[in-house]
């Protein structure tokens, strides 16, 4: 663990979350959450339902109001900024519930996500995305609500990529989709890393997370309980037994 943190310190992280607290009304959801995402790294945020994974991501994205602590992206403070500015800065968010625009076609959904090219990130075009998600090409004129669950999951990722992000926050990409699509999801995440993106994924599925990510945080009841490599985690099975549903 110590070695890893040291390595990160030498290479400045692209996204840094420090001492993050988040509230809904009077209930505090996150307590002093600190997370680093290195450049071109895939990091998993593991935890059970309700542990605070989605809240962490929404906080980063500026979608929640009662948040304090520090969130910086490329050494710029982004906490308190509206979410459209955070997106424009280069952070893309793929929500857990997919939230595609049901009455828009596949192409129109992608159009909503389209943003100008960015210097520090790969550029995505419709054609490139259709190569990555061949199903979407066939269904480009279909309405969002007529897609299958797996296709909707692909569309929501593709829509975020249309913004040419440098960092992608991927909220539970393997949830509620068929195993064959999960496999495809793993391939997509590997491709994002190959393209030079940094990815933070939230997962309940330890097996899937291990396949696609470089290291992991475990979050429980709004607190970070583990920070380290999967190998270390394997050495201490009691940790995953305690905090994850395995």
């Amino acid at each position: 663990m110590a070695v890893l943190s040291l390595k990160l310190r030498m290479r400045p992280p692209v996204l840094e979350v420090a001492n993050l607290n988040a509230r809904y009304g009077r209930a505090q959801i996150l307590h002093d959450v600190s997370i680093l995402l290195g450049r071109n790294e895939v990091v998993a945020l593991l935890g059970r339902n309700g542990a605070g994974k989605t809240t962490t991501m929404k906080s980063i994205m500026g979608m929640l109001r009662q948040v304090d602590g520090r969130i910086s992206y490329e050494n710029q403070d982004i906490l308190g900024k509206p979410s459209y500015m955070i997106c424009r800065a280069g952070i893309g968010y793929v929500p857990e519930e997919r939230r595609i625009f049901r009455d828009l076609t596949v192409e129109e959904n992608l159009e909503v996500g389209r943003r100008a090219k960015r210097e520090n990130a790969p550029e995505w075009t419709l054609e490139r995305l259709f190569d990555l998600f061949p199903n979407l090409r066939e269904r480009r004129s279909n309405l969002g609500k007529h897609l299958s669950g797996g296709e909707q999951q692909m569309l929501t990722i593709a829509r975020t990529l249309m913004g040419n992000p440098a960092v992608v926050l991927l909220d539970e990409p393997s949830e509620g989709i068929a195993p064959v699509i999960v496999e495809q999801m793993g391939f997509v995440i590997a491709e994002l890393k190959r393209q030079g993106l940094s990815v933070l994924i939230s997962e309940q599925n330890l097996h899937f997370a291990r396949l696609v990510s470089d290291r992991a945080y475990i979050i429980e009841k709004g607190q970070v309980r583990y920070d380290g490599s999967f190998d270390d985690l394997d050495q201490h099975p009691e940790i995953s037994r305690k905090y994850l549903a395995v």
């Binding site: 994205m61 979608m63 509206p82 979410s83 459209y84 997106c87 424009r88 968010y93 929500p95 939230r99 625009f101 049901r102 009455d103 828009l104 129109e108 959904n109 159009e111 909503v112 996500g113 943003r115 829509r159 975020t160 913004g163």
Partner: peptide
């Protein structure tokens, strides 16, 4: 297209970078 998207889910539209 943005207006129609915002009619359905304006929070998501903002998260996709639309002011």
């Amino acid at each position: 297209v943005l207006v129609r998207a915002a009619t359905q889910d304006r929070e998501m539209v903002a998260a996709l970078g639309v002011n």
